[in-house]
Structure formats: structure tokens, C-alpha cells
Amino acid sequence: MIRIVLSIQYDGNLWHGWQKQKHKLTIQDKLEEAIKKLILIKINVICSSRTDTGVHALEQIAHFDTNIKKSKILWLYGINHFLPPTIVINWVHKFKINNIKEKNFHSRFSAISRIYQYILYNNILKSPFLYGKVGWTHKKLNINLMNNGAKYLIGLHDFSNLKSSKCQSKTSIKNIKYIKIYKYKKIIIFIINANSFLYHMVRNIIGLLINVGNGLYKPIDVYKILKKKKKYNIFTFMPYGLYLTKINYSNIWNLPKKKNINFFLNIYKFLVQ
């Protein structure tokens, strides 16, 4: 038995998130359909981080098990041949399955951390060229205030007040390693690295920090919300600007290392000249 590992990119606008559903309009549905067309066998694909409707991925990692023998290049071109144009496999890696379960690579449980980026267009008017690829807010934002508020989220905390009521995670304790916020003209970039995330956690953080940036909340209010010292309204920000950009694993797995080139950011820089 062989474990096939995939690195996947996708535009989330046309799909209802990662996890398969009855209407079969998800990334997992389309990926499993493509693999079935290639090997004529139904399989189940497991991913590293489930993404919501409208959320994009520059590097989603997933795996499946099979007895079918093909070279990595045949898996790569074969699966891509049957995928829609908004979903692409970047690379394929193979592992032999060990008899000891803990010794096997697992796309979800072997992951050390996940990195998400949020691209926000901060301008009075929307841009028709950026629709579906970035978030948007018309109120002017203060980067320093947002960075000061973000500091309270760093580290190991209970994020139960920053998750969706539909979240099914066994624990709300998560460890955010860093949050970086910087600006290029009318574009604001949020980068968040954590061991894992709760349902809607990233979009709730973005919504919270935007309210700090526009002066509705103070940076210290982030701490109060996190520790539930006071009841605040938190809005889940739009998904369009959210990108799963990197899944970090130990070097022992020797997975292909491809530099994460922010090509989309370069395009956006061109569009906001």
C-alpha cells in the first residue's frame, strides 16, 4: 500500500469549501472524482486544513492510500487532466505505509502549523478587477493600532470567543505563533501562523482587527474579548481575501520544498497603481 501526498492550489470562488457535500460542489468532491476517473477506483482524500466557501489555497496538502502503482509524474499529470481549471495539483510525493501507524505521514496530524494570509483592499470604492480575490472595507485603517491589538492574540489561548457557533473542534485552545500586518498602498496583508485554527477563527480575527484599525475598538479590547471580560459584537469578515498559503511539516518527511511566491500580491500591486 502506498500513501500519495498532493500539494493543491485552488480558486475558492466557485466551490463550497473543501469538505465534500451532497451537491458535489466542493474541492474534495472534484479531487476525488478526478482520481476515480484516473484509476477507476473510489478513494477518500484527507486534507491538512479544511477551507470554507470562497476561501482560496496556494498550498493545501492532502493524501490518499492506494495499491495502484504509478510514477509521481503520471499521478501529477493524470489527476490534473481530470480537474476543473480552478483546481491544480502542484506536486506529488509517495510514501510506503509503515506497519506502525505513528510512523506514517498524515497530511493533518503530521502538520506542525498552518499559515493563512488575508488580502484586504482598503479604499473608498471597490475594485471590479479584485472581486472575489480580496476582502474590502472603505473605512481608513490604522496599521499600528491593528498590530498592537494583534499582540494580545499571540501565544497559547482559549479562542472560544473567536470561533463560529457551528465549530465542532474538540478543543478551543490554539497556539498562534505570529500575526504580521503590513500595507502596500491600498492593500493590507494579514499573515497568521498557528498550530491549527477553529471554524471561522481567522475571519473573526480579521473582523476584530479591522474594528481596531477603524477606531471602533481599542487594542486592549482584543485582550478583553479573548479573556471574555466584556461582551462585544464580532463580525465574521468576508472569505474572498483569505488564502491558505503554507502547511509546515518536519523535515523528516522530506517533502518537496517550493518557495511560496506571492504572485497574486504582485498582480494586486499592479492593479492598485
Rank of each mutant, 00 (worst) to 15 (best):
I2P: 00
R3Y: 10
Q9F: 07
D11A: 09
L14H: 09
L14T: 11
L14D: 13
H16Q: 13
W18L: 02
W18P: 01
Q19F: 08
K20C: 03
K22N: 11
H23S: 12
K24F: 04
Q28R: 05
Q28H: 07
D29T: 12
E32A: 05
E32W: 05
A34W: 04
I35A: 05
L38M: 14
L40K: 14
I43N: 04
I46T: 11
S48M: 06
S49G: 13
S49C: 13
R50T: 08
V55E: 01
H56G: 09
H56I: 14
E59F: 00
I61E: 07
A62F: 12
D65E: 15
D65P: 01
N67S: 12
I68S: 09
K70M: 15
S71N: 13
K72G: 04
I73H: 09
W75Y: 13
N80Q: 07
N80G: 08
H81T: 12
H81E: 11
I87L: 01
V92H: 01
F95Q: 03
N98K: 09
N98R: 06
N99H: 08
N99S: 12
I100G: 05
K101H: 08
K103V: 00
K103H: 12
N104S: 06
H106Y: 13
H106S: 08
R108A: 08
S110K: 00
S110L: 08
A111F: 06
I115D: 00
L120E: 06
N123L: 02
L125Y: 15
K126E: 11
P128I: 11
V134Y: 08
G135R: 01
W136G: 01
K139I: 12
L141G: 04
N142Q: 11
N144P: 00
L145H: 06
L145C: 02
N147R: 15
G149Q: 07
A150T: 07
K151Y: 00
S164D: 07
S165Q: 13
Q168C: 04
T171F: 00
K174S: 02
K177C: 01
K177I: 04
Y178F: 15
Y178H: 14
Y178K: 15
I181M: 09
K183M: 03
K185F: 04
K185V: 02
K185T: 05
I188L: 06
I191E: 15
S196C: 12
L198Q: 00
Y199S: 03
H200L: 12
N204A: 10
I206N: 05
G207S: 05
I210L: 08
V212E: 03
G213I: 10
G215Y: 12
L216M: 13
L216I: 15
K218G: 03
I225V: 13
L226V: 11
K228F: 04
K228H: 10
K230P: 10
Y232K: 01
L242Q: 01
L244N: 01
Y249A: 04
Y249V: 05
S250N: 14
N251M: 08
I252R: 14
N254P: 11
L255N: 08
P256G: 03
K259S: 09
K259I: 13
I261G: 00
I261F: 02
F263C: 06
L265V: 12
I267V: 15
I267K: 15
Y268H: 03
F270N: 14
L271K: 13
L271A: 09
L271Q: 10
Q273G: 10
